[in-house]
Computed example of a mutant assay.
Amino acid sequence: MIRQTSRKYASAWEQRKLGEIADKVTAKNLDGNITEVLTNSAEYGVINQTEFFDHAVAKESNIAGYYVIAPGDFVYNPRISATAPVGPIRRNTLGIHGVMSPLYTVFRLTDAVDGTYLSHFFKTNGWHGFMKLEGNSGARSDRFSIGDATFFEMPIPVPSSSEQHAIGSFFSRLDNLITLHQRKRLWFAK
């Protein structure tokens, strides 16, 4: 007897450009109403600047030129590190509005792409090849250089909505499980 298996997700994935599913955030903090200064760390993601640097790097007098970042927005940090060879792209999961230095590229999804799926995609190196081909390390060896127009040409694999949700949920549960085991290991080491 031949056993038939059904494939829950058999549809082909689309290849979309980042600029087709997201827009660059250009709104500045001109009125100075938002004072929560955020940064994007390869290791910790989008976090409060004072938590990362142990002090405020930005001054209230100069954050008027910073981009306003909303919950769910993505941030590209061009700073190169051992864990982020072309710089990290992370999502604002803090649930708050903040401001981000204009050295970073902030973008917001405009199409029906699952933000959790895309967040996990950017934790892979699946987009690094494009960056290495289209950009360069620039004059400063610790910064990656790529123009906005080129950056938003980045190809993004986009499965069906239900598959995006399933992938995002799977990797979120996996991340939570890893964090739980790390905490247990630290607790037992005490």
Rank of each mutant, 00 (worst) to 15 (best):
F107S: 10
R91S: 06
T110E: 12
L109V: 14
V75C: 11
A82V: 10
G95L: 11
T105N: 09
K132V: 01
P85W: 03
A139V: 11
H97C: 14
A84H: 03
I89K: 04
Y67L: 15
F107I: 11
K132T: 00
H120K: 07
V113N: 04
K123N: 04
V113H: 00
H128A: 00
I96D: 08
D73G: 14
R79V: 03
V106C: 15
Y117P: 02
G115D: 09
F121E: 02
V113A: 05
T93P: 03
T150R: 14
I146S: 03
E153L: 14
A149H: 14
T110L: 10
D148A: 14
R79T: 01
Y117L: 08
L94A: 08
F122M: 07
P71Q: 13
N125V: 06
S145T: 13
P85Q: 09
G126F: 08
F122H: 02
V86G: 00
E153P: 07
G95K: 13
I69T: 15
W127M: 03
L109C: 12
R140P: 02
E153Q: 15
F122P: 06
A82G: 12
G126V: 04
S81R: 01
F152H: 09
W127A: 02
L94E: 09
K123V: 02
D111M: 14
G72S: 12
I146H: 00
R79D: 01
G147K: 12
I80Q: 02
M100K: 13
T93G: 10
T124A: 05
F121C: 07
D111G: 15
T93C: 07
Y67G: 08
T124P: 06
K132H: 03
A82E: 12
L118Q: 08
P102V: 11
T83G: 02
I69R: 03
R143K: 05
G87V: 05
S119F: 03
A112L: 14
S137H: 06
Y104S: 04
P71E: 15
T150H: 08
T124E: 05
D148R: 11
I96A: 10
P88M: 02
P102F: 10
H120S: 01
D148I: 10
D142G: 05
S101M: 11
V86R: 00
H120T: 00
L133M: 03
F152V: 07
F151Y: 10
